[in-house]
Design a protein around this nucleic acid. Structure first.
Lengths: 103, 103
DNA sequence: TAATTTGGTTTATAATGTAAACTGGTTTAT
DNA sequence: ATAAACCAGTTTACATTATAAACCAAATTA
């Protein structure tokens, strides 16, 4: 019987994206963050950020709440448990590629 | 004067690719590796691997030597100094996204 | 010598990322 | 009051990238 030499575990494609990863990186460290803040921190265009937040939200990695800040609309994002788990697993998987020992 | 809040350094797009990263990860640990070995380790299709090796080679991150193993052709790959540097920088940059402290 | 396998390359297509163009509402200027 | 500029996003069209199917040449096997 042939043993498959699965040296590299696949990387979650939802997280293996520069902008989405930056968003998750921000959200994992805070209670919540709004669209404008995330946009400033990442330097992303509004369009790109909107699309990527939708994808994270559709995957259940974040939740998005639309509220108001005074009269202005305000889009607040939070990481979910599922998102936290996925991020943690992504980090562990990536360590293999980066040759960083698992702690 | 406005200060730009460049929180996240951009990730080298050549390395931020699952297959190319796996290739570099292999090559950084060995003197050299051939096409067939890399294909087996990564589980990639030959076509995909061929394309990605070309890209790494075009960027000067690896060098590719075509030789023979007996009568069969054999494509040998080695990481270059430039590739080594790029990989190291990619790892450091990524740590910021992953919230892994720089050592 | 015909069929299969090996070691790849080329190329067509699918998937993804990105920013320009747009929307709906708000504030400012005239 | 109303036009002009602005803010907070969304939609959509386009560019880039990834991927595997189809292909090729040489070697091996039947």
């Amino acid at each position: 019987m042939e043993e498959k030499q699965t040296t590299f575990k696949p990387l979650d494609p939802l997280l293996h994206s520069e902008l989405r990863l930056a968003v998750m990186s921000i959200l994992i460290g805070v209670e919540e963050a709004d669209f404008v803040y995330i946009k400033a921190q990442t330097g992303a265009t509004a369009g790109n950020l909107s699309v990527q937040l939708d994808k994270l939200s559709a995957a259940g990695y974040i939740e998005v709440e639309k509220t108001f800040k005074g009269k202005k609309t305000c889009t607040i994002c939070r990481i979910t448990g599922k998102g936290r788990d996925a991020f943690a697993e992504y980090v562990e998987t990536l360590k293999q590629y980066l040759q960083i020992p698992k702690v």
